[in-house]
């Protein structure tokens, strides 16, 4: 397996598919920002990490596009938190991007000979 620069992967992934990652994270249920960042870290086994300075502007952008819907939720005895839901538009975008991503990964595999797991 060829050695790929961690930082490069990080940059590439974020550039092309940061949106896809976030949409996937909130797919099954609404989550707040801290939860989203922790989940990304955990599911990528520590390889991906979004900083506060980039994660939230990204969330806001997705919200402005109408793919996410953010709302303050209050629970008894806790501070209110802002939760993000996947909108129906977001759900459609997620499906389309998944398809594109699969095609891209398959093509990369064929061209570079890298087998994917």
């Amino acid at each position: 397996m060829p050695d790929i620069d961690d930082r490069m992967l990080d940059r590439e992934l974020k550039k092309g598919s940061a949106e896809l990652i976030i949409l996937s994270i909130v797919e099954e249920r609404a989550r707040h920002g801290y939860e989203i960042s922790k989940l990304i870290e955990a599911r990528s086994e520590g390889q991906l990490k979004f900083h506060v300075a980039s994660l939230y502007p990204l969330l806001y952008r997705l919200e402005e596009r109408g793919w996410l819907h953010g709302r303050w939720v209050e629970k008894a005895g806790e501070r209110r938190r802002r939760f993000y839901w996947l909108t129906s538009e977001g759900r459609r975008v997620l499906a389309r991007q998944r398809e594109t991503w699969k095609t891209f990964v398959r093509a990369m595999g064929l061209v570079t000979g890298v087998e994917h797991a």
Partner: peptide
């Protein structure tokens, strides 16, 4: 605090947004 990266990062990421 490092989460906020440098002093300009947050504003830089935010600037393209409509808000």
């Amino acid at each position: 605090l490092e989460e906020l990266l440098g002093p300009e990062a947050l504003a830089a990421y935010m600037r393209p947004l409509r808000q």
